[in-house]
Design a protein around this nucleic acid. Structure first.
Length: 126
RNA sequence: CCAGUUGACCGGGUGACCGCUCCACGUAAGUGGAGAGGAAAGUCCGGGCUCCAUCGAAAUACGGUGCCGGCUAACGGCCGGCGAGGGCGACCUCAGGGAAAGUGCCACAGAAAGCAAACUACCCCGUUCCGACGGGGAAAAGGUGAAAGGGUGCGGUAAGAGCGCACCGCGGACCUGGCAACAGGGACGGCACGGCAAACCCCACCGGGAGCAAGACCAAAUAGGGAUGACGCGGCGCAAGCCAGCCGGUUUUCGAGGCCUGUCAUCCGGGUUGGUUGCAUAAGGCCCUUGGUAACAAGGGUCUCAGAUGAAUGGUCACCACGCGGGGGCAACCCCGCCCUACAGAACCCGGCUUACAGGUCAACUGGCGUU
C-alpha cells in the first residue's frame, strides 16, 4: 500500500479507551508540537483521535491544542489511509506554532509512518 | 487638578473561507435558528431532586453555628443597627453568648500569679562584740512581668494604708429612650468581683446517610443461578405415584461421605456493553409600578436563554478599536512595530462564600490645593 491520496475525506472519530490503547501499540513518529501513532484496523474509514495530557496545561489550553490539531487534520484529511487508526498526541508547542507548520508536520509524519509500515511488512517476510 | 474610599459594570469588534454540537422544517439534498463564565474554578456551606434507612418524633453521642433585629426555600449568606479596635476623614476590621455552675491553666522573670502574702528597702521596741540580730507594724518606694489586688492630689501617721476627703475609675438598686443588642442618668457602696471559653465545659439553636457514575427504562449477545410445566431408561403398582441407580456435576486437591441428578419450553433474577431518560419552564431572566432606610416582598408586562459525553460552542486570514514602544509634527494627528490580550472551559440544577484576573468605564463620597 502506498501513500497516494484517496478521494474520500470522511474521518471516523475514536471514542473508546481501548481504541486509544490499541493505537499506542502501533507505529509512532513525532515532531515538536505533536506525535502521531498509527495502526491498522478493520474499519473502512480512517479513524482519528486526539490526546492531550493534563500536565500539558489547564483546560482552555488543552482545548485549544485539540482544536488546532483537529483543524490541521481536516486540512490534510486525504493523507489518512483507510483501514487505519491514528492518534495525535498534542504537546505544548502546538499552542503557539504557526498553522502551516502544523499541517506540514502532519503530512510529513503521515508519509513517514506509512513508509515505515511498508518496511516493517517487508522485514517480517523471510 | 492631585490623593483616596466604597459600590456597580465591561472584559474585544467586523468581514471572508473552512468546520463542530443541538433544535425546527423537509422523503432527501438541504434551509433556518441557537451555542461557555463572572468567576463555568476551588468543592467550603445551604437547598431542590433521587435512592437507602426509618411508623413518626425525641434523646444520647458527635459535628456545626454563636451581639441584636430583619430578609430568605435554606445557610456558616445578605441587609440594617449596636459594641470594640484602626484611620484627619469617606470608611475599614472583628470565632463579638456565658468567667458569682464547676474543673483547669497563667510560660520566662519575679519574694509572690489568685489567697492573699512580703525579697530589698521603711518605721517602732529590745539586745549589741556597732558588723548586725530578735520581736512587732506597714504595703507607699525599688525591682520582675502581658498582668502585682483601683489612679492622682491633699490630709493623716512612728512609718504607712480608702484610714479620711476631692476628682477620675469600678460595682450598682432604680429611672429614661429603644422591639432588642445597647445607650444616657444614677441613690448607694470605700473597692469587694484579674485574664484565658481559637482549654475542658455550660447555655441556646441547627443537623439521618449517600450522591446524577443518584435513579428509571430498553435492546443485544454471553453465562446458566432460581421457579414452573412437559417428556425419558430400570424396579414396584391397573393407575396416580413411590424408590434406587448408570452417566455427569458440585463440595479447593485425593479418598470417604453428602448434595444435585437427563432433555425441552416459559418466566424471574444477576453482571457486561450500547442506547433512551433523568436533562433544562426554573426559589428563571429583563422592564415597570407599589411597600420598605435596605436586604427583599407583592403586582403587572414580556422573553424562552448551551445541553456535550475521548466531551460541541471552533480553525485560519485580513481590517479596526484599546494598550505599549519608537519616529515625525507647535498641536489635533500621522507612520512603523509589538501584544494580536488577563484569569480561565458548562457536565443534574439553583442560592451563597472563597480564590484568580491584563486593561478599562461609570457613580457616590472623603481629604488637600487652586479659581470664582
Amino acid at each position: 500500500m502506498t501513500a497516494e491520496p484517496h478521494n474520500t475525506t470522511r474521518l471516523r472519530g475514536l471514542k473508546k479507551r481501548s481504541q486509544f490503547l490499541r493505537a499506542a501499540r502501533g507505529i509512532r513518529a513525532g515532531r515538536a508540537s505533536f506525535a502521531l501513532q498509527a495502526i491498522a484496523s478493520e474499519h473502512e474509514l480512517p479513524g482519528i483521535g486526539f490526546t492531550v495530557t493534563k500536565k500539558t496545561g489547564n483546560s482552555p489550553e488543552r482545548n485549544r491544542i485539540k482544536r488546532r490539531l483537529r483543524a490541521a487534520a481536516g486540512a490534510c484529511a486525504t493523507g489518512f489511509q483507510p483501514q487505519h487508526d491514528y492518534v495525535l498526541v498534542g504537546r505544548r508547542e502546538a499552542l503557539a506554532a504557526p498553522f502551516d507548520e502544523l499541517v506540514n508536520d502532519l503530512t510529513g509524519l503521515l508519509t513517514r509512518v506509512h513508509t515505515k509500515k511498508a518496511d516493517g511488512l517487508r522485514n517480517q517476510r523471510p
